[in-house]
Simulated assay, not measured.
Amino acid sequence: MAVALNTLVEEAERYLGSAKIQDYCPNGLQVEGRPQVSRIVSGVTASQALLDAAVEAEADLVLVHHGYFWKGENPCVTGIRQRRLKTLLNNDISLLAFHLPLDVHPDVGNNVQLARQLDITVEGPLDPENPKVVGLVGSLAEPMTAGDFARRVREVLGREPLLVEGEQMIRRVGWCTGGGQGYIDTAIAAGVDLYLTGEASEQTYHSARENGVSFIAAGHHATERYGVQALGDYLARRFAVEHLFIDCPNPI
């Protein structure tokens, strides 16, 4: 079956509530392709590798978390930007991208989906007083060492995480997928035993060590693979179209 592109885009925007969320990039339809969609290819980032795979898969629409047209970028259509856009336009493929709306959604959001993968019970936002902080806080069913939790992360995500191990058992966890290392002090104030995100900065190590908490950087790409898959599955069920997630390897 096929669905009108505009109908699919409108439902995705409604479901995510993207119009209400301020972001660093446009959310929604970034490149318009053919008017009907019967096959969606999803991925984390609209890289050339993903676009080439989408062409090979005969996709009508590419759905991603990291799209194009970020604030502060050079707007000129040259280099890799020209090649990426040319691939989409020459093959009449649409690009649908959602950044923060796909981080914060209570069902298909990256943070909620990662919690489900790692068996963390969500308790609430990392900072209830600041809605701009997109992380969450939750608990484990049984306390475990930081090393054991890191092994769980490795088994689930298929990637060796960076671990700064504290001494206490892990019961309460704070997390923010992607590049959320700057929220570590917020997580510490929330009383977590371990804070998990995708990336690490030099000062993250010192914040963890000096505050006596554990820290895990599990990979920006690795922690953000699940929201776009869940959204793609939702749209596929909603409109009886095909959905294929393509994971282009990225060690960062």
Rank of each mutant, 00 (worst) to 15 (best):
I21L: 15
V173I: 15
R116Y: 12
P26E: 10
D103A: 10
R171I: 06
I40G: 02
S18W: 08
H99C: 11
F69I: 10
T45H: 02
L136E: 09
L51Q: 00
A187R: 05
P143W: 10
R225T: 04
P251R: 12
N111G: 06
T177P: 06
P251L: 14
T121H: 15
P35W: 10
E224D: 02
D119N: 14
V31R: 00
N250I: 00
T7A: 13
L96W: 06
V173E: 04
W70R: 13
A12C: 11
A218Q: 01
G147T: 15
V37N: 06
Q48I: 06
E123Y: 05
Q229L: 01
T197P: 06
Y226C: 07
Y205H: 14
H243I: 03
D127L: 04
G212K: 08
V62Q: 00
T45F: 02
R14G: 00
G135S: 11
R159K: 14
V213P: 03
D193V: 00
K132V: 11
F245R: 01
Y24R: 15
F149K: 09
V62K: 01
L100K: 13
Q181A: 15
N250S: 04
A218M: 05
I40R: 02
L88C: 01
L162M: 11
A146S: 15
L114N: 01
V213G: 05
T7C: 07
P125T: 03
K71M: 08
G212S: 07
